[in-house]
Design a protein around this nucleic acid. Structure first.
Length: 485
RNA sequence: GUCCCUAUCGUCUAGUCUGGCCCAGGACACCGCCCUUUCACGGCGGCGACGGGGGUUCAAAUCCCCCUGGGGACGCCA
């Protein structure tokens, strides 16, 4: 393609929770394209959801992407000419542009309550119609709007979509996509807390940051018309759109933590090497040669073809990942091998962290490896362990784990204090005796009856691995219920 | 329910645009054999796919249509 403008691509993660494998996937493709075109990769934090965005998630995202070797040219941490790169710090800009649309009668104030909107949608669904905003506040008089605003009524700003009509845009991988405006809602632009929605902020920021190619996940296709409408309303040129296929669970649904480990921290902890992870991700949806599948980032950069991505949703296959990882382990050589074990498994920090737990539990270092094995093992074997307490059923135990899993997912810190509260919280909520709750959890998370104190053990095992083991324990219990042994 | 995307071995894919070189190639997994006092690695071989139906054509995995399957979206989440 002939690019007169410099290539500028972006990744726009929202800092909620653990860094996601899908984020790495999208980042990799943006990264490869930017490098290949000698363009720039911008990292923009989309933290306009004040209820969910967390600063520590942002930190974790940075360090994880760096671990993978995915570097960006502009971002909140490295700066750049188009900042700020955190959307929450651009609120005034977004509001200003929203105002502009209101003045031009391309957007309007809406005073509808969330409850009313929910009722409307429910009714529409019940009637077999597609749910959407009913235009209730579209035609309020200027005077009415003014007085309700003056009265401090809670409100949002919505885009005034002029129907009938349709929007056609070009997807660089799929070709033209046409969507009827019947399917496009009068999208909220500014939320009642004054923050912009994704749709508004994303369009404004992409334009202001001179983004040339929007490379993002397929789930955005159906909202692209909203974005196109906004570009048109502002009179801005469209970037090129490329929608990447969605990574899938084994059952082909969109990859989710319910069915698959999705935290990059899990894979790091598991001992997946960055080049293996990148190589694996790169193979999902694209092929760089007919008879080769091992590629360095340099080779991938040279051979990458953005417009030739296969669109069947690829299933995230751990077995293949491990195969590639083994290749990289064999290729890393003794020096890297030793360095990796020392830095990732027996790091100074980690050993100091676990010292208090094990110094009183070993009498000579010959016991160290065995006693600490649960910190390094992945999936555990629960057979022959009393994971179900006496007088309790597998299903009850499973229910307790599921409750705990919910709390784990909501966790935004991971320290002893938090884990203690989490454990006692669930135990009390379920009205379980300590031994009927704590021992099963201990076995689920550590695979043994004699681990160091549970909260400390759980902290050391790590959030991602704890989540994985609890989920696996649930599977084990479900199977035990069906097929008691 | 409505709309959009999508469809080659169990999985990741090559081939599809520019029909014939494809009774479909590679990799993972699986199975067998070889190497090996075990395991692993490695080598060799095997199993295994164009979702179905119409059409266009001398010729279709490749182009068109319908059906079916899968997925996504329909939020003051991104």
């Amino acid at each position: 393609m002939s690019e007169l403008q410099p290539v500028r691509v972006r990744i726009a993660p929202s800092p909620t929770g653990d860094p996601h494998v899908g984020t790495a996937y999208t980042t990799l493709f943006n990264f490869l394209f930017a490098r290949q075109q000698q363009g720039k990769l911008i990292l923009r934090i989309e933290d306009t959801d004040q209820k969910r965005a967390r600063r520590d998630s942002e930190e974790m995202l940075f360090s994880t992407l760096k671990w993978l070797g995915l570097h960006w040219d502009e971002g909140p941490d490295v700066g750049g000419d188009y900042g700020p790169y955190r959307q929450s710090e651009r609120k005034e800009i977004h509001q200003q542009y929203a105002q502009q649309l209101v003045q031009q009668d391309k957007a309007f104030y809406c005073f509808c309550s969330a409850e009313r909107l929910q009722q409307v949608r429910d009714a529409q669904r019940a009637a077999g119609e597609s749910p959407g905003y009913d235009g209730h506040c579209r035609h309020l008089t200027q005077d009415e709007v003014k007085s309700r605003l003056a009265a401090g009524e809670s409100h949002v700003v919505r885009l005034k979509v002029t129907r009938p009509g349709q929007v056609t845009f070009e997807d660089g991988i799929r070709g033209p996509i046409t969507i009827d405006l019947k399917q496009v809602d009068d999208q909220v632009l500014i939320k009642s807390d004054g923050f912009p929605t994704y749709h508004l902020a994303n369009v404004i920021d992409d334009h202001l940051m001179k983004i040339s190619h929007v490379i993002r996940a397929e789930e955005w296709i159906s909202s692209t018309p909203k974005h196109v409408l906004l570009y048109q309303a502002f009179g801005w040129p469209l970037p090129k759109f490329y929608h990447l296929p969605l990574l899938r669970n084994k059952d082909q649904s969109k990859i989710s933590k319910r069915k698959n480990p999705v935290s990059l921290n899990y894979y790091r902890r598991k001992g997946i090497l960055p080049p293996a992870m990148l190589n694996f991700l790169a193979l999902m949806g694209s092929s760089f040669a007919e008879d080769q599948e091992i590629f360095s980032v340099e080779e991938m950069t040279a051979r990458f073809k953005l417009n030739k991505i296969s669109l069947g949703g690829p299933i995230f296959d751990m077995v293949k990942l491990k195969h590639l990882n083994q290749h990289y382990i064999k290729a890393m050589g003794p020096r890297c091998f030793a360095a990796h074990v020392r830095e990732e498994m027996y790091s100074q920090d980690f050993l100091e962290q676990i010292y208090p737990l094990f110094c009183e539990r070993i009498t000579a270092f010959e016991e160290f490896v065995d006693k600490t094995s649960f910190l390094y093992n992945g999936e555990l074997d629960y057979r022959d362990l009393p994971i179900v307490p006496k007088k309790r059923t597998p299903l009850e135990t499973k229910a307790a784990f599921e409750k705990l899993l919910e709390k784990v997912d909501q966790a935004d810190v991971w320290d002893v204090e938090f884990v203690e509260q989490m454990l006692s919280g669930v135990q009390q909520e379920l009205e379980l005796k300590p031994r009927d709750f704590l021992m099963p959890v201990r076995i689920a998370v550590t695979g043994r009856k004699d681990s160091p104190p549970l909260p400390q053990s759980i902290v050391c095992v790590g959030k991602a691995m704890t989540r994985f083991r609890l989920a696996k324990a649930c599977e084990f219990l479900a199977q035990l219920e069906v097929n008691p042994s």
